[in-house]
Design a protein around this nucleic acid. Structure first.
Lengths: 139, 139
DNA sequence: GATAATTGTTAACCTAGTAAACGATCTAGG
DNA sequence: CCTAGATCGTTTACTAGGTTAACAATTATC
């Protein structure tokens, strides 16, 4: 079967498996992968603007609006006006946002430990390294 | 940045990069990844039925209909009635389908060679092995 | 000071799926 | 034999996760 030796095919199948397990672990009202990623950037990056965040996530500004809306709706961040540039909205995490991020990160680690339990530490590091190498050539 | 050490995040980013390059190489009217995968199974598997194919692709039967419709519309396969079981439609590739498959496979190999040029043969084999290991635990 | 670029946002659209229901058909148990 | 359940392909409605194009407001550049 030609597909079995294609990286793209195996990458997609593995991606779907991880995503399904992610959702199972995070539950029905948990943060979706993209919302969790966005929250991570917001918590870890001071003075982040929406355009910044969209670029870092590799999506369009327009697509980010719904994500930020959700995080704001959950009370996990605030859009704060920036006097130096009145076009932008800086994204500032709330205390609840930081807490939710830390709790979600624990769940995500549990999920990855579970779904990747057949990979030892060396293999997992290898996998990360190889995926990053792909990212570097394509971004 | 916590995301950088997560397999899921890196997997998705790498997957998006491969998918974008795939589409760039295959062109605007080329076979989409899922349609190419389906055609591969049809060409390589005699007497394949739609339910079989859906199971192998890991999608629902209902979702497969549009894919088979497209392949049939392009003249790459025929739905043929099976006398032994009048519920099923066997999927039989046409000559044009086999030809299109072989041409597409060449393009896919070109695409993977290009996007993965920073990985040597050993790394590429490692990556395939690790992705397959994930697939085995999750399917 | 005019022109161009950037920001956040909305609206319309697209892709790739899922879930539920359907009639047709096949299979197994009594 | 025949009835209950399973399976097959299909349609319909829906969802997630994006994109592109346009917009007013604002800032940067020449």
């Amino acid at each position: 079967m030609a597909l079995e030796s294609l990286v793209g095919y195996n990458l997609k199948r593995a991606y779907v498996i991880l995503q399904n397990d992610y959702r199972a672990v995070m539950g029905d009202h948990g943060l979706s992968p993209r919302v969790f990623s966005a929250l991570t950037f917001v918590v870890e990056t001071p003075n982040l603007t929406q355009s910044d965040l969209a670029r870092r996530l590799g999506i369009e500004r327009s697509g980010l609006v719904a994500i930020v809306d959700e995080l704001e709706g959950r009370g996990y961040l605030c859009r704060v006006a920036v006097p130096q540039d009145r076009r932008v909205q800086a994204l500032s995490p709330t205390d609840a946002g930081v807490q939710a991020y830390e709790a979600a990160l624990k769940l995500v680690h549990d999920h990855e430990d579970r779904i990747l339990h057949t990979l030892d530490a060396v293999e997992r590091a290898q996998l990360l390294h190889l995926l990053k190498k792909i990212r570097e050539t394509g971004e």
